Simulated scan of single mutants.
Amino acid sequence: MAAKLRKGDKIVVLAGKDKGKQGEIASVNPAKGKAIVEGVNVALRHAKATQGEQGGRQPVAMPIDLSNLALLDKNGKATRVGFKFEGDKKVRFAKTTGDVI
């Protein structure tokens, strides 16, 4: 199945402890159905000091399920994503506005 959400997309979280937060997708794992979003679902990880890096508690963005994310359209509202053909190219479009993403 084609990926509806991709790296660099602006999204909003639909469910969970970070509901309503917005961010940009840093990476997507389609096999597991998860994505890492900057500033969302942040957990503290304890790191040991190494040469050149300081140890301590460091915030790390954890994966969030793709079903809990929605793309933001140009108006800043959550939208679903559809596919259509323009000429011979398959493109994604926002279902609310019909604009090509």
Rank of each mutant, 00 (worst) to 15 (best):
K95M: 10
E53T: 10
G82V: 05
G55H: 00
F85V: 15
V60A: 02
K84R: 15
T79P: 04
V91I: 07
V91A: 08
G82R: 06
G76Y: 01
F93M: 00
F83A: 01
F83D: 00
G82W: 13
Q54L: 09
G87M: 05
T97K: 04
L69P: 00
G52I: 08
G82K: 03
A94W: 00
A70P: 03
K74L: 05
R57G: 09
G76E: 08
K90T: 14
F85M: 15
Q58V: 08
F93T: 00
R57I: 11
A61T: 04
G76K: 01
L71Q: 01
V81D: 04
V60L: 05
P63H: 03
G98T: 10
A70K: 07
G82H: 13
G52K: 10
G56Y: 04
G76I: 04
K89V: 11
G82Y: 14
K84A: 12
R80M: 11
I64S: 00
G52H: 09
L66Y: 09
E53R: 03
R92I: 04
P63K: 02
Q54M: 08
L69T: 00
D65I: 00
P59H: 03
A70Y: 02
G52W: 07
F83P: 01
T96D: 13
G87K: 04
G98Q: 08
F83R: 01
I64F: 00
K90Y: 08
F83G: 03
G82C: 11
M62Q: 12
D65W: 01
R80A: 15
K90I: 10
G82M: 08
T97D: 12
G98W: 05
V91N: 08
R80E: 11
D99C: 15
F83E: 04
R80W: 09
